[in-house]
Every structure is written in structure tokens, then in C-alpha cells.
Amino acid sequence: MNRNKWLLSAAILAFALLPLGLGTYHQHILIVSLFYVMMAASWNLLAGYTGQVSFGHAAFAGIGAYASGILATKAGFNPWLGVMAGTMLATAFGFLVGLLCLKMGGIYLSLTTLAFSSILHIVINNEYEITRGTMGLQVPGLVAEYSKISYFYIFLVATLLVLGVIYRMVHANMGLNFRAVQNDERAAASLGVNVVRVRVMAFTVSSAMAGLAGALYGHYLLLVTPQIPSLDQQFLVLSMTVIGGLGSFVGPIIGAISLEILSEYIRAYGEYHVLFFGLVALTVARFAPKGLVGIYQSARERRMQAVAKTSPAVNR
């Protein structure tokens, strides 16, 4: 275990040093990747661990981004306070939406979150005076002097925080409850797990994380637009999680980083790139529902079995 901790710290340190030798273009890719890691990991907390597919995750990021941006521009809040307020508002909305539809489970949650995200979209477009509509709200940065490096570290710290919380949640007692809720609601309920409470909890925490990610992202782009809470964004987050591996801890991290980098490559194909992206996601989701992590694991198991067969004396 100790060795693992060392390795993990070394890996994080290596990642933290990575942008120092890179140009601004590559630094930008890394920052955006970290944003998607937060989004995908927190969506996975909900979809992968409690089996609730929310289509409003991008909308919660939008709430965080808009709340923080509006407070900073209209009320003169310090952007950091704005980020906190945005995260809190996303948490509150997450709690309310969660209460509204979690009792009904499954598809109801998916469709209600979809409706929620549509309402948000229309409100943002119509309340032009406050949100600047499709034009986007120009917001101040988090640091006085715009520099990619400082944003990278801000995003890295936030990402580690989000990942840490998720890790604790799914590996603590509560994680067991989570899985139980996903696998068999009735059985979980009979074991004394309060199904609704676990779900509302997961939904609220995951919305809060999306709100945090969205608020930071808005202050990084210096512009908050309806693109942040859009269905396209939701599609990206979903694909990243599914391709990486739904319901595994590292899956969304792998998915988010590799797909963000991949999308930089295929961008060159202009109008084909979204189609290509979609086809990859569809193929993986259909033929390897556990994603890249699943592929890796089954390959490993097969190899283990092969080893076990060739040397029957070794007892695994």
C-alpha cells in the first residue's frame, strides 16, 4: 500500500510538471482535459455507481458558470467567491431536482433532467439582459495576470479534490450502499439502505461537482455561453465516461483525457469530426460496454488464465 502511495504521488507530480515544458496550445488541451475529467468523473458517480443517467449534468455546470459569472459582472463579486456561490447554487438545484424525480427512478430521472436542461437553455437565451444570451457573458479571470500555467494548477487542484471525494465516497461504506442501490433496489432497501437518500445524496454531490467544474471553466474561457449547458456538451461527457469505462474509478479519467486529445486530432477533418467521434462512442458502447477499462481488465484476466493453464502448479 505504501509503495502505491509513492507511485501515485510520483505520477501526480509528473503530471503537475508536465505543462512546464509545453507551449500554450498544449497547456490549453491539458486544462480542457482536466475540466472534462471533473465532468466525466462526477457524472460517473451518478450513472456508473447508482445507475441514474442524468442528461442535466452539463446544465448544472452551466448553473455554476452563470451564477459565478453573473455575480462577478453584475454584483462585483470576487470571482473566487463567485465560484463558491455557483457551486452552492448547483448543489441546491441538484438537491431539488433530485428530490423531484428520484423517487420515480430510471427513465423519469433521465427525461426530467433533459427537460430541466431545456428550460435552462431557453431561460438563458430569453433573459438576454442578464445572461447576454447566445452572445455569451464576458467574465473576469480567476488570476490577475492571465496565464495558462496558473489555470492549469487551479484545475489540477480542483480535479484532485473532486477525484478524492469520489474515491472516498465509493470506497467508504456509502459506496457499498451505492452499488447495492444500482444492482437491486428492493434488496438494498430490505437491507436497510435508504435508497432515495443515497440517490439524492449522489445526485446532489455530483451536481455540486459539475457546478464547480463549470464555474472554473467559465472563468478560464473568460466567457460563459449557452454552449456550457448544452446537449452537445452532455454528449461529450457521456461519451467520455462510456468509452473510458462506466462504473470504474479510472474509466472517466482515461476517457476524458484520451477523447479530448483525440478530438484535437480529428478536428482536422472539419465537418466529419463529430460524426467520427459519435461512431467511436457508439462502437465502444455497443461492443465493450465497460469501456477501455473493461477491455484492459478482460485482456488481463485472459492472460492470467493462460498463465494459470500453462503452469498448473502455480496456485493463484
Binding site: 430510471g106 457521456l238 462512442a281
Partner: peptide
């Protein structure tokens, strides 16, 4: 049902 929802969403 959620798996099919994800697949048809991507589709």
C-alpha cells in the same frame, strides 16, 4: 433501460 438510453442517445 439506461444502457439502451445511452446507446440511442449516441445514435
Amino acid at each position: 433501460e439506461l444502457y439502451s438510453l445511452i446507446l440511442t442517445f449516441i445514435l
